[in-house]
């Protein structure tokens, strides 16, 4: 087995399996620890600039990645006209810039305030490091390779599908520039650390809130009781 096969053919599965297994294990054995661990209560002003920019940026970027993953042809088709490709690249670049600025703000804030340092764990630092690598490499791809988005659709997406369908096709990505390869591998690291960091909070997006009634009541069991009144 070559190192490429190890990195792109085996490592992703390891990450995904550990992530899924770990998240389930943590959810069943230590549900209390599932939390976004917000530190807004200790410092609010700087968090605004960091957290809002980061989250909206990353949500935009993930959405674009997801669209590409599901309908890669849409991106290839879009990019057939050079002007449109620039729009795509610039949009991606702007969103990435948002995430980078947000992330740098968050990192600065975490080191700057004694109160925030007091609630910072080792895994928080690991997480920030992994995210920083991901954003910087992503941004690098957008800057140095103007056709990055087409590559994603043409090579990375088929590769990802080959992973999902259990027929990993390593050759699709192993020859891409190293910057892209780091981006891909680090993405799997990001998945890997989900159950070990506060990233678990994105597994509990409170969708149900959108339609649930205002008041919640929990009963042990509610049933008519026969007493002197009835």
């Amino acid at each position: 087995m070559t190192s490429d096969q190890l990195l792109f053919g085996v490592f992703p599965y390891l990450c995904i399996i550990i992530a899924i297994g770990g998240s389930i294990w943590r959810f069943t054995s230590d549900r209390f620890s599932y939390s976004s661990l917000s530190s807004q209560f200790l410092e609010s002003k700087q968090l605004f600039w960091g957290s809002v920019a980061w989250h909206y940026g990353i949500l935009g970027i993930l959405t674009v990645h997801l669209v590409g993953l599901l309908i890669p042809d849409s991106i290839l088709w879009w990019n057939t006209v050079p002007m449109r490709m620039y729009v795509m690249e610039v949009t991606g670049f702007t969103l990435a810039l948002f995430t980078l600025v947000g992330l740098l703000f968050l990192i600065y804030r975490r080191f700057r305030h004694a109160r925030i340092r007091a609630v910072t764990s080792r895994m928080d630092l690991v997480l920030l490091g992994v995210l920083l690598i991901q954003v910087v490499t992503g941004l690098g791809i957008a800057i140095f390779y103007r056709w990055g988005s087409s590559w994603y659709a043409a090579y990375a997406v088929p590769y990802l599908w080959s992973i999902f369908t259990l027929k990993p096709n390593v050759s699709l990505v192993s020859n891409l520039p190293w910057l892209v390869n780091i981006h891909i591998l680090n993405a799997f690291v990001m998945i890997l650390i989900i159950p070990f960091t506060r990233l678990v909070h994105f597994l509990s997006v409170p969708v149900e809130f959108a339609w649930r009634p205002n008041q919640l009541v929990r009963w042990y069991k509610r049933e008519k009781v026969v007493g002197p009144g009835v």
């Binding site: 209390f32 917000s38 807004q40 149900e208 809130f209 649930r212 919640l216 009963w219």
Partner: peptide
């Protein structure tokens, strides 16, 4: 206000409780 639905009223006695296993610090 709780997005997670962690807060609830106990049906039997109306005590308002916060289920910390459901709370995700949405604040």
């Amino acid at each position: 206000s709780c997005p997670s639905g962690a807060l609830h009223k106990r049906g039997e006695d109306g005590i308002v409780l916060l289920d910390q296993e459901v709370c995700r610090a949405w604040r």
